[in-house]
Design a protein around this nucleic acid. Sequence first.
DNA 1: TCCTTCTAAATCGTATATGATTTGATACAT
DNA 2: ATGTATCAAATCATATACGATTTAGAAGGA
Lengths: 257, 257
Amino acid sequence: MSALSGIPAKGATPANDQDGASLSKAQLAHQWIRSRISDGTFSPGYRLVLGQIARELDVSAVPVREAIRLLEAEGLVTFERNIGAQVAMLDATEYVHTMQTLSLVEGYATALSAPALNADTLDRARRINAEMADCLDHFDPVSFTRLNLEFHSVLFEGCPNPHLLDLVHRGWSRLSALRDSIFSFVPGRAHESVAEHAALLDLIENGADPIQVELAARNHRLGTLEAFLARQKIVAPVTSPASASPAPKGKNNEVPQ
Amino acid sequence: MSALSGIPAKGATPANDQDGASLSKAQLAHQWIRSRISDGTFSPGYRLVLGQIARELDVSAVPVREAIRLLEAEGLVTFERNIGAQVAMLDATEYVHTMQTLSLVEGYATALSAPALNADTLDRARRINAEMADCLDHFDPVSFTRLNLEFHSVLFEGCPNPHLLDLVHRGWSRLSALRDSIFSFVPGRAHESVAEHAALLDLIENGADPIQVELAARNHRLGTLEAFLARQKIVAPVTSPASASPAPKGKNNEVPQ
DNA sequence: TCCTTCTAAATCGTATATGATTTGATACAT
DNA sequence: ATGTATCAAATCATATACGATTTAGAAGGA
């Protein structure tokens, strides 16, 4: 029956054309929208209309809807019943909350990851940090931001807790996807940042207490947040003091002992 | 205009019957499945078939699918392309990772919430803890578990960071929804738990450093995790030491100072 | 008996169609 | 001229229909 002719009897690629990736339309739409958000084509507030996106991707509205609900769960878009979806707005308050959460989970992930880092890996981190220092001289904020993610990725990717790692990824993804030019770079902070990176690496290399590594990594990110808030503080207070700065004095959450 | 008569002129409920809740079918399905998971009707590993659930709820498969994808994002079900969904299995490793993550976010949320807690609220927490002590005498693990959530809720619900609060809720929800009888209660731990609750309340009442509150809350939960692991350890090592117990000796992560 | 191959049922993934809701525009009355 | 009610277009939410994929079981051969 199936031995008719030269047509490949069963080996015919089942679903997709030939790449073997085999993406569902929903996944396709998810990646497509996501990349559009990342590259700024869909900027925060942009209205995501199901039918419109569906036509553009030549699919039906159903998988597009699924993609958007997934993006909603990731915090990249907001969605309202019978109204629709739009790219999430990352206002100052949201930025503070996201950074605060990221500082927490990234700090812990880094501490859990630290014991697994070998000399080679630490050396790679040092080289990346050196490149970041170079970027300061040439004033290259874009590369600096990219390298910053690379640096921290080296440190936290070894985290053995997948849930925690996922939270770290989500935080970074939210920040990088929705980054507004306002938040991307605080000039005066960059030098300090490179120095703190070096200090963090020293701690890890010397096998410091996990809690020390954790708080160093956490305070490093909170420092960036504080720098941002310091620039904004004259304009308007963003949140209640307790939430905006869990350690306003800078002394309460220093590395203990 | 609207003074016609007893009939509410324009206020006629637009979509739903009369309750005003106005749930979408997807939300309905979400809650329905979720409650079935919580009450154990759908136990871990149970296969969730779209059409079957759709028929039972008298809706189409589309909103059921959406509900399931949402539950997947919450970590309550697993989903595989072209295969289907099933209630997530909470094995020992997953339990460890979930508890570890919860200890982190709940600890921080509690610390951030602490300054906002007034005397009345703290008193309520003390009363709940007293009830928990009673449960120990009558050996009532079910009430104990419920009160435990209540107690901690009082402490962390004041957290001003909604993202963080959401993570805490997800952790609890995962644990309570997927709890297996195996994990629900470690007898020897309960007395210690009540004592630690009291200590935590004292810290908060005395306005202790946020970092102290955070680590006390964190270590309280990690203590429960350790108790579980201690019971299991003879059978088989669950994960690598670094992930299972970030502070194996119990001394590395004590409250500093 | 065991392994392979085919077939069919079950289920998922998506397209299309239709009802429900919101929103903006227009017409009308004051 | 302004505010209000009505209507139409756009869009979301869901039902139905159909193609694609997986999986279990039957049929056939070694």
